[in-house]
Amino acid sequence: MERETLFIAFSTQKGGVGKTAFTVLLSSYMHYLDGKSIAVIDCDFPQHSIMEMRKRDSELVFSDPFYKRMAFNQFKEIKKKAYPVIASNPIDAIEDAEKLIAGSAEKIDIIFFDLPGTMNSKGVVKTLREMDFIFAPISADRLVLASTLSFASSLNENLITVGKSSIKGLYLLWTMVDAREKTPLYDAYTDAIDELGLSILNTRIPDTKRFRREMDETHRPFFRSTVFPPDKQLIKGCYIEELVAEIYQIINV
């Protein structure tokens, strides 16, 4: 029987290209703005970055009247609590996800998995092979390109094409795109990626500092939060809406 909940991971072998940031951004966008039922399994052991972010966000909501009022108004409007974030590890991630599904009062549409940035971590391959879709952020940096293409090609050759996984699709995603870079450069890279038999999303995410903005005591607009969606003004020009729409089309949600 096919699982109703989709398992999705932003995964790469190179740090600093946004796998955790995209996991949080899309989870919050889909859950709070689009009405999807989302959960996150944070198996990036031992740092558990998303779990730590949830703790910081929750503390601000409980202690700061500004955020407390925001949370009240949000719940009043969308009738949804914050999505669950479960601290796990690559070995137990799938089992923890199945427990979460079994214990949920409502159907969970998507569970995002945040995995360590290396295939050498025990259990990573075991968890990746259970994903329905994998999105690998990539930038126009030779080291990042080489590492990510090696990672994607390995998954494609050893798991996907030989039918040894649940993976329905593996897609690269251009991120940290420098507006000063010429478009033909990315087109040339994309052609090379096509020749490797890999797929890449049409949406390209620009390099912008606004992705780093989290909730803080200044109450300025923020982009990353596990309890609120990204600020609508900050979303403009970041192509997050286009990215979500393209992913929905791929995963058929």
Rank of each mutant, 00 (worst) to 15 (best):
T127H: 04
K182Y: 03
F151P: 10
V244W: 07
D191T: 07
L173D: 12
E157W: 02
E4Y: 04
R220E: 15
I134P: 08
F222S: 12
I91C: 01
I235Q: 02
V253P: 07
R54V: 00
I78S: 10
N89Q: 02
S37Y: 10
V17K: 07
A140T: 07
K209V: 14
D42M: 03
I41T: 06
I193S: 01
C238D: 02
G169S: 05
L172A: 01
Y32M: 04
E59Y: 11
N202C: 01
K55I: 12
L143A: 11
Y239D: 00
F7E: 05
L33W: 01
S11M: 15
E241I: 08
S88H: 04
I200M: 10
E2Q: 13
F222R: 10
Q233H: 05
I160A: 04
G35I: 03
E217C: 05
V144K: 12
K126H: 10
A179T: 07
A21R: 02
V61S: 12
D34R: 04
N120R: 14
L128E: 07
F112I: 01
N158P: 05
L6S: 10
K19E: 06
S27F: 07
K168Q: 10
N202S: 15
L149E: 14
I193E: 03
G15W: 09
H31D: 09
V162M: 04
A71E: 06
I86R: 01
C238F: 06
P184S: 07
Q233M: 07
G16K: 14
I91A: 09
E52N: 15
F211S: 09
K14I: 04
L25N: 03
F7D: 13
A71L: 00
V85G: 00
F62R: 15
S153Q: 15
R212L: 11
S121F: 12
F10A: 11
L185H: 13
K122A: 08
A21P: 00
N158W: 05
K79I: 00
N120K: 09
I8G: 03
E4Q: 04
D132W: 09
K36T: 08
L173C: 03
P230I: 10
D178F: 03
L234E: 09
V17D: 00
R54I: 00
V40D: 08
E195L: 08
I167T: 10
